[in-house]
Nucleic acid binder design. Structure first.
Lengths: 203, 203
DNA sequence: CAGTGAACTGACCTCGGGGTCAGTTCACCC
DNA sequence: GGGTGAACTGACCCCGAGGTCAGTTCACTG
């Protein structure tokens, strides 16, 4: 007679590795959308059709889950960017190929970008440091480009160069935000639009 | 013998108008720093040396306080920008004077900008709408400039123009963020630095 | 078919933050 | 000097979110 009762506890046949994968994907989405503070563990679990305790059993804590999400996003982004920068083309085409790589990587998970660039993170704490460390790894690439860009125009002030670097990463954030508000736009279309805008601005 | 006891309740001689002023200033600072979700009413009250109930007696609710903070920031910003745009100089010097006006307005309360541009606001709700309404009033100015800029370069796509508008407001946010991280920089120095960078980019 | 371990949950604890109430102290005015 | 109202607080309620525990169901193996 136990058959009439709707099953509650008990395995659903999903192995741990696969479930972790699903949960991590949900975490990236949720953290990216609401930020660290705004996201709730229950909501992340529910996205996968599972409850909090399992999420905690697999990831330990909210901080650890965020760290894992950060690792994943930063990893794929860093890989894509170093690949895009490999050719060594140091002209003005570089930022375009960087944008293309970012859009392609983010296609289907556009909010992921904001796991890396989360203004919600508590000012003090290991999480903030981890995020900054990952960002730094990416910013190094932008820093070189910025300094070179300015040097070619006769500006050597290191603070100017630093500001330009921030301007660039900020621009990427802005573009991703705009992209999120225009879901119909594909990665290719975005890249094309950016090519048009950048050439218009710099020309 | 009541004199030995440290006073707790009872007026401190600060009239309501003045206290509201102090609380509003504290709210702008706190909301700008931590975002709507991250800021706490108790912290805002404590900044002024007062407790929660008084804050609630004067402003009613967290939403109402945020709305008031929004109103104040948007008001001073809109005033400063329309004044800066009044001369009608439609050359490339316009964005520079806009930046100058913004930096001057924000001097001493740099975080205030992020009350207007708060990524933490709940997606649904009157607060989000209010913020967007105030932003729109400012964006109108940016929109005209963006369209004009692109038209002069032979681009008429309205989506391109919209994207450029976002790019511009995003750039301002990025610059303010950088400014916050460099407290020594004065508003004038920031304006000068931006002049250098923008001419380098566009030239 | 009994035993084992992995997958999974309901119910609970705790703590911080929004919001409220019943006051208490003070300044001012007659 | 007593009354009135404004300025102000300690203590409280409630809820949502992080985190935990004691299980329950299932697949797999001997």
């Amino acid at each position: 007679m136990a058959s009439t009762r709707t099953r509650t506890a008990g395995t659903k046949g999903v192995p741990r590795a696969e479930r972790e994968e699903q949960l991590l994907t949900a975490a990236v989405e949720e953290f990216g959308r609401r930020g660290y503070g705004g996201a709730s563990m229950a909501a992340i679990a529910e996205r996968v059709g599972v409850t909090k305790p399992l999420l905690y059993q697999y990831f330990g804590s909210k901080d650890a889950l965020y760290a894992a999400a950060l690792e994943r996003v930063a990893g794929s982004l860093t890989r894509a960017l170093t690949a895009a920068l490999a050719p060594g083309v140091t002209s003005l085409g570089t930022p375009l190929s960087v944008l293309g790589a970012i859009f392609t990587t983010l296609e289907g998970r556009r909010h992921a970008w904001f796991v890396l660039y989360d203004r919600t993170l508590p000012a003090a704490g290991a999480l903030r440091e981890a995020a900054e460390r990952h960002r730094a790894a990416i910013d190094v690439l932008a820093a070189a480009g910025s300094a070179e860009f300015l040097a070619a125009r006769g500006i050597a002030d290191p603070l100017d160069s630093d500001a330009l670097k921030h301007l660039w990463t900020g621009t990427v954030s802005t573009l991703v935000t705009w992209w999120i508000h225009h879901p119909g736009e594909s990665a290719q279309e975005m890249a094309e639009r950016c090519r048009r805008l950048i050439t218009a601005i710099v020309a």
